[in-house]
């Protein structure tokens, strides 16, 4: 690990001001991702500004009936929050399906959103990786990519990257149309969560649209009145990242899909909002056939790699199954 200075600030504004003058500095949340990457030599900040206890650790009721989640709220506390469990089960389930009890106790909401990909070439500094070292190539493309992206990858050029975004929580938040509150050197702004994470495009090094020094202060959840759920498929029964996950919310009226939210995890460089499928479903009968047709429509754009083609039928099945479960059609 490279040497670094450790700085504590007194309030969020001071933290932002501190980091603004440190082009190679980073905010530190729970550290469960950043410290890991520093040990691997992947992250080499020269100063850490500790914001774990600086940003709010509270979940508060919002005026519109939604919730405001402080950036410092630990994943475990968020999953245990009664309001989240009752009104946003998809979020509680996503959090509970992630990492381990110990990690969830330490990890923060902001840190979770901004955790970096688990691609094994990214985390190994002796391998080529356009995300870590732009222009060095993408080791995963011809290497181990069984758990890499099938949608929205960049398959050639300097931006080549087939990595996935690993956060389960983010997938649920995308389905919930959350809004991320940010404080930067130029003031505060709100980012709809669907615009936070990005596809690799021609620059795989940037995971998100955040600018250097921007501090996530909170995540707002709009009110939610649809039943929702999260289903994660992984290699072992617990403590593993998603192969594919689905966050879904569904309202059926008179046998017809009145409203639906669908986001996929483990398939792309960002949580994948399945807008095509959502469009194909609204106003259609809430049946297995329409669910399958909608999933197929979404996945028609998939460009699987030699080693991860299974994710396409897997994602399809999980979408159908999760929607069916939300209709009560499957226990």
């Amino acid at each position: 690990m490279r040497e670094f200075r450790y700085a504590a600030a007194t309030d969020p504004a001071a933290a932002v001001a501190l980091l603004a003058g440190e082009p190679s500095g980073a905010f530190l949340g729970g550290g469960t991702n950043l410290v890991d990457l520093m040990k691997l030599g992947v992250a080499t900040p020269d100063v850490l500004v500790d914001v774990r206890t600086l940003t709010s650790r509270e979940v508060t009721d919002a005026a519109d009936g939604g919730l405001r989640i402080g950036a410092g709220v630990p994943n475990a506390d968020l999953a245990a929050d009664r309001r989240v469990r009752e009104r946003y089960p998809v979020l509680a389930q996503a959090l509970l399906a992630a990492a381990s009890g110990q990690l969830r106790n330490r990890a923060t909401t902001a840190g979770n959103l901004l955790q970096r990909t688990r691609c094994g070439y990214f985390t190994d500094v002796t391998r080529p990786c356009n995300k870590r070292s732009p222009g060095s190539g993408c080791g995963a493309l011809r290497g181990l990519h069984r758990n890499h992206a099938v949608l929205g990858q960049t398959l050639d050029g300097p931006g080549t990257c087939v990595a996935t975004q690993p956060s389960d929580m983010a997938v649920a938040m995308v389905a919930l149309d959350a809004v991320v509150q940010v404080l930067g050197p130029d003031g505060a702004r709100s980012i709809p969560i669907g615009e936070l994470h990005r596809l690799p495009g021609d620059d795989a090094s940037r995971d998100t649209t955040l600018r250097h020094g921007e501090l996530v202060t909170a995540v707002d959840l709009p009110p939610m009145d649809m039943p929702s759920r999260y289903r994660k498929v992984r290699d072992r029964a617990s403590f593993a990242f998603a192969l594919v996950s689905v966050a879904a919310a569904l309202r059926v009226e008179d046998g017809v899909v009145a409203d639906v939210r669908l986001a996929l995890g483990g398939v792309a460089h960002k949580p994948w909002r399945a807008a095509v499928a959502e469009g194909a479903l609204r106003g259609r009968p809430a049946t297995e056939e329409s669910f399958a047709a909608a999933a197929d429509a979404e996945l028609a754009a998939a460009t699987p790699l030699p080693g991860n083609g299974y994710k396409v039928p897997l994602a399809r099945n999980v979408v159908v199954r999760t929607l069916l479960e939300l209709t009560g059609g499957l226990a």
Binding site: R118, G120, Y121, D124, T126, R127, G139, R142, G143, L144, R146, D235, R236, A237, S238, F239, A240, F241
Partner: peptide, 25 residues
Amino acid sequence: SVQDEVHGHYANHDLAEYHVATNAD
């Protein structure tokens, strides 16, 4: 343990990627 045929290393060389059974399994 997956060996990368281009780079020759074990590409999943840690306990997050080399899966062993957990309690839940």
